[in-house]
Simulated scan of single mutants.
Amino acid sequence: MSAIRVGTRGSALALAQTQTIANRIAASAGVEVEIVPIETHGDVSTESLASLGGTGVFASALREALVRGDCDVVVHSLKDLPTDPFPGLVIGATPKRADARDALCARAGFTLDSLPEGARVGTGSPRRMAQLRKARPDLTVVDLRGNIDTRLGRVAEGDLDAVVLAAAGLGRLGRLDDASTELLSLSDWPTAPGQGALALEVRDEKLDHLLHTALAAINHGSTEGTTTAERLVLAHLEAGCAAPIGATAVIDDGLLFLTATVYSPDGLRSVTSSHAATPDSHSALHLVEAARDVAGRVATDLLAGGAADFAPLKVSK
């Protein structure tokens, strides 16, 4: 293989995180790496994420380019990747996860608790909208699209009092310290399944040896296990990436812990479940097996608690 072509969305954030991955692939494989920007429907549409359907609006064009052979591997933000398998493709590696938390970016140094009554807070995420309405029913939640700079610009211009963004994205663009006024605790504010992690997707075929070696070096077993647990909750609930669901998995003292919460869109109702599993070892294979076990139990609890009655899930009610 004379060069490895890495497909990505063309946003500043996507290019920044892909450049980091490209550098690691180049260092491991010892060959030239070419970054191939690909325009997606989610990048060009101005419709809300919920109206676009959420699931796959950023991933479909990347996957189609990979299937066509326009690139050899694509880099996804894992939280944007549908849980349903795509014919002919597999996740080849999950790099070590960055900060999974959400960050409040507010004017005048406000925190979520100190924002004035009626403050206008922007987000394009139905999950964040529900959490904001649950935590602060007095706030005005504004549906928001655009890249990180565009969203932060709405606060700087005074149109919004705050926005909620992923800490990982801010960090990858070097904006976390100057833009965020509060990092929201995962215990109180669980984030999207897979948030903070990337996924490297490849064609489901025998890989070139150099690419296979590079992906094996990049994969992070603990991240693979925890994000698999979170995403399997979505799969069991037949919920898309934009569903109002937060999930957090961690490995602590030899146990894989998973907590997930389903919210009603208005934030008035929610149900939470937590379970733990004991992997046979910390190998990626055994962590994924434990993830399947714990995610199934959590999803069963959420449905028993009535999640399908108030959240936009596809499961039979």
Rank of each mutant, 00 (worst) to 15 (best):
T140N: 06
P126R: 01
V155F: 11
V142C: 02
Q131I: 00
R128V: 14
L115A: 07
R154Q: 09
P116G: 12
L115I: 07
G153Q: 05
M129K: 02
R127V: 08
P126S: 04
A135Y: 07
V155T: 01
E157G: 10
P137L: 14
E117K: 05
R151E: 14
G158W: 15
L160W: 06
N147H: 08
T150M: 11
A119S: 13
L139T: 02
D149V: 12
V155K: 00
D143L: 09
L144I: 01
A135V: 05
A135N: 11
S125C: 10
G158Y: 15
P126H: 05
E157D: 15
R151N: 15
G146H: 14
D149K: 01
R127F: 10
G122L: 13
R120E: 08
D138I: 14
R133H: 09
R133Q: 08
E157L: 12
R128E: 12
V155M: 03
L139R: 02
R133I: 02
G158K: 07
S125H: 14
E157H: 03
D149F: 15
A135Q: 11
D159A: 13
G153M: 01
P116C: 10
S125T: 04
A119Q: 03
L160Q: 04
P126F: 08
A130K: 01
D138E: 14
K134N: 11
L152W: 11
Q131Y: 11
G146T: 04
P137V: 11
K134V: 10
V121P: 03
G118K: 00
L132F: 10
D138M: 08
R136S: 06
D149N: 06
L160Y: 05
P126Q: 12
K134A: 12
L144F: 11
L115H: 09
T123Q: 03
V155L: 09
A156V: 06
D138R: 05
A130T: 00
G158I: 03
N147C: 12
I148E: 14
L139S: 12
T150C: 08
T150E: 11
T123L: 09
A135D: 08
T150A: 13
L132S: 04
G124N: 10
A156C: 12
G122F: 12
D143Q: 13
L139M: 03
S125R: 05
R127I: 15
R128N: 13
L115N: 06
V142T: 00
D159F: 08
E157W: 09
R133F: 15
L152K: 02
A130S: 07
D149Q: 03
V142M: 00
A135I: 06
P116R: 00
G153D: 07
D138G: 03
R145E: 06
D159K: 09
P126W: 15
G158M: 11
I148F: 10
G118S: 15
L139K: 00
Q131F: 12
D143E: 14
G122K: 02
G146K: 12
P137N: 15
E117F: 10
D143R: 02
A156T: 07
P116V: 06
L160E: 02
G118T: 07
R120H: 11
R145W: 13
R127Y: 15
L115S: 07
V141H: 01
R133S: 03
V142E: 04
V155N: 03
R136D: 09
A135K: 04
L160G: 02
L115D: 04
T140G: 00
R120C: 05
I148Q: 04
R151Q: 14
G124L: 12
P116W: 04
Q131P: 00
L115W: 13
V141G: 02
G122H: 09
V155S: 01
